[in-house]
């Protein structure tokens, strides 16, 4: 129970719905069984394999074992492009200086190994007045605004 409480303290969600309360399974075991609704994508996994099964997924965790390994950004974005609307949670070595880009790639929850400083997080998410390019969020790129 103590572990659970600690985890909930660290969990940051930008969603209204209830968090899934059971553990995520690996991509391989998810593809083998029909009951799981939460899956964890590792950097080497092909997130596209989940696309035929998106309707039964409520939580996709994307693991960042090291913050410098950026494969998870593509995993997140291609799932959003495929129409996934459930929770997309970045877990692992998730640092405050990466969360703004993660939000742009479609992540709407964070479960970092080390807690994020609240004011640093707020500053990071408020940092960018505009964006240059479209991504998985709804922000309008500068080049569209220029010609609106």
């Amino acid at each position: 129970m103590d572990n659970m409480a600690t985890e909930n303290d660290r969990l940051i969600r930008y969603r209204e719905d209830e968090a899934v309360d059971h553990a995520a399974v690996t991509v391989d075991s998810f593809l083998d069984q029909s009951s799981a609704s939460a899956v964890r994508v590792e950097p080497g996994d092909d997130a596209r394999e989940l696309i035929p099964h998106l309707e039964r997924l409520a939580l996709v965790e994307v693991n960042f074992p090291a913050f410098g390994d950026g494969r998870g950004y593509s995993s997140a974005r291609l799932l959003r492009e495929a129409g996934y609307e459930g929770e997309l949670r970045a877990v692992g070595d998730v640092l405050v200086d990466q969360v703004a880009y993660m939000r742009r790639c479609g992540f709407d929850a964070f479960d970092p190994d080390a807690p994020l400083d609240e004011s640093d997080l707020e500053a990071a998410l408020d940092r960018w007045p505009e964006v240059y390019q479209p991504a998985a969020d709804s922000r309008t790129p500068i080049w569209t605004k220029r010609h609106a």
Binding site: G68, G70, Y73, R77, Y101, M102, W128, V131, Y132, Q133
Partner: peptide
């Protein structure tokens, strides 16, 4: 240049 500046998906290549 504009497209690649602060690209959220391609900053940890």
């Amino acid at each position: 240049r504009q497209w690649s500046s602060f690209h959220p998906e391609f900053s940890y290549l």
